[in-house]
Computed example of a mutant assay.
Amino acid sequence: MSDLTSHPVGEGAPDIRDMQVADLNKALRAGAKDFRRKPAFGLFFAAVYVIGGWCIYLLLFRAHLEWLAIPLTFGFPLIGPFLAVGLYDVSRRLEAGDEDWKASDIFAVVWRQRLRQLPTMAWVVIVYFLFWSFFAHMLFALFLGPSALTNVTTSYAYLLEPEGLTMLLVGAAFGAVFAFVLFALTVVSLPLLLDREVDFVTAMITSVAVIRQNPKVMLVWAFMIAALTFLAMLPGLLGLMLVLPVLGHASWHIYRLATVSGTGIAQ
């Protein structure tokens, strides 16, 4: 059996294959199956995400910056794909028929990524998230004025006024564009960087190429991710304990289904 704990299994960007909408159901079923087979890993990585979200919201309320909770609620899921790297590795091992490993093996692989291209991609995602937060702040001030930034901490009535509703609609539209651009850059690039020796620019180009070759399928996949994530965040982020692991595992299978060199369910 090959050693999946040391080096990626291939070099260079893989070729892209045509996908069908039915492939999304395959990926979700495979993701749910991976989660059932190794639930501890999914629950752990999801807990990191959920607890991190609670901490951010707690800090905002303690700093009387409650208004920032709205853009962060829409923007926080942008960093989810990077946190799912450990789930990609679990699915990679299960797909290869390798179940003789420990939790430390997964963390060792994630730790070793610091010497490769994933940290650079992490910075891309983080900077993108910060830019979205700045942009949301600018929209808030543009539509509601500087005084609202102070008064909204004690009253959310501003959001029910025409200016507030317009701001929410415009913000949601821009947020959707921001999210889709990042989705296009990361939907394949993150699992690709884990799986193969490629630079992060090549990985992002490959990811965008997948979108261009399969626009309908990937638009549906983006909508499914957004809808499931939004619904999972409603009960105090607790729904993410289930949704995030399944989507994380499924994202690995989407990568495999999108590439000619993919194995497992892609065959």
Rank of each mutant, 00 (worst) to 15 (best):
F178M: 06
A63L: 15
V152W: 03
M224V: 14
T150K: 14
A27N: 00
V9L: 13
H137M: 08
W111M: 13
D105F: 08
H7Q: 10
L139Y: 05
R256D: 12
V217Q: 14
V243Y: 05
D89N: 07
L78Q: 07
D105Y: 04
A27G: 01
T202S: 15
G164F: 03
R196Q: 05
G171A: 12
W221E: 06
M138S: 11
L257S: 10
R29I: 12
T263H: 12
S155T: 09
M224D: 05
S155P: 08
L4Y: 13
G262R: 00
A30H: 03
Y88C: 09
D199H: 05
L219R: 08
D195W: 01
V201C: 07
A27Q: 01
W221L: 12
F174D: 09
L139R: 01
H137Y: 11
P119T: 01
T154Y: 05
D34A: 15
L160I: 11
T206C: 10
E163K: 13
V152Q: 08
S189H: 01
R29A: 12
F74T: 00
V208E: 00
G248M: 02
A209M: 11
G262A: 09
A22Q: 15
L72N: 02
T263C: 12
Q213K: 15
L194S: 11
V125A: 14
I225A: 13
L159A: 11
A203Y: 04
D23I: 02
I225D: 13
L130I: 11
G31R: 01
I70L: 14
G75K: 06
G80S: 13
F178Q: 04
F107D: 03
P39S: 06
L144K: 05
S189R: 00
S104D: 09
V90Q: 02
R114I: 09
P119A: 06
L192K: 00
Q20P: 00
L190K: 02
M218A: 07
D100Q: 09
G31Y: 02
A30R: 15
D15N: 11
D3F: 06
L185T: 04
Q113W: 04
L139V: 09
R112N: 11
H64D: 15
G52I: 08
L242Y: 13
P14Q: 07
K26I: 12
R212H: 08
Q113N: 10
L244E: 05
F61L: 14
L168M: 15
T206Y: 04
L4N: 06
R256N: 14
L68I: 08
V109N: 09
D34Q: 03
L43Y: 11
I51R: 09
